[in-house]
Amino acid sequence: MSIQTRTHVKAAEATNPQAAAAPAAKMVARDVKVFYGAKQALKGINIDILENKVLALIGPSGCGKSTFLRCLNRMNDTIDNCRVEGLISLDGEDVYGRRIDAVQLRARVGMVFQKPNPFPKSIYDNIVYGPRIHGLASHRDEMDEIVETSLKRAGLWNEVKDRLREPGTGLSGGQQQRLCIARAIAVSPEVILMDEPCSALDPIATAHIEELIDELRENYTIVIVTHNMQQAARVSQKTAFFHLGDMVECDDTEEIFTNPRDERTQGYITGRYG
């Protein structure tokens, strides 16, 4: 990112009253553009992600919401020929800057994926994987404690406490996804990104996860991508609508669903396209 863009962003922030009125922003995105090779996937996104709130990203397939989500913890770095421009900051620190390494960033901004992807290890080892590589726990007792608290927070403890040594891949889909959430919680991130976490699950498992998201909000800031309008309405406080690489509007969830300002938003949430 060039210095010129940076000053430009600063100026925009100063004149933008909305940004000034949101002091509790955990993460801030300003004029974020993403290119895959020559193709532009995001065309300048500005969003404030508020602390201890759930932000839902909605929009038709291919609109760039997952791309944006993956910018927040630099998962796009693993994709060749992907280029990110603009400013994304976490607690005021540029995440693409020199002082933060992608590896450290991802420990602070965890991620849960569309398809449950437990490692081919035991449930216990799945949870302690993150703490171990980050040196958060060295003793057996500490690990046991992390496993217990993480699984409890993810609402999975009672179901698996007697089979912690069994492979995580042996759980049901919904349990696997909660295991993945527990795994993300175990490294005590500040922000959790969820990329359509319920799209591979049945309605009961989905209800479980939604409840969980609501509880997790107390301790974490959450960004969730979803194709399910009801889900966005149920779990989020803020909703952002993406369309063709643009963010069309971002507001309180209630506002978006009852009184959308843009007619594209209205068209999408009422099911006219997308």
Binding site: N73, T78, Q104, L105, A107, N117, A184
Partner: peptide
């Protein structure tokens, strides 16, 4: 997806 899961937890 397994690699993503690991990177997503901050693994090198």
């Amino acid at each position: 997806s397994l690699r993503d899961g690991s990177y997503g937890l901050g693994a090198t």
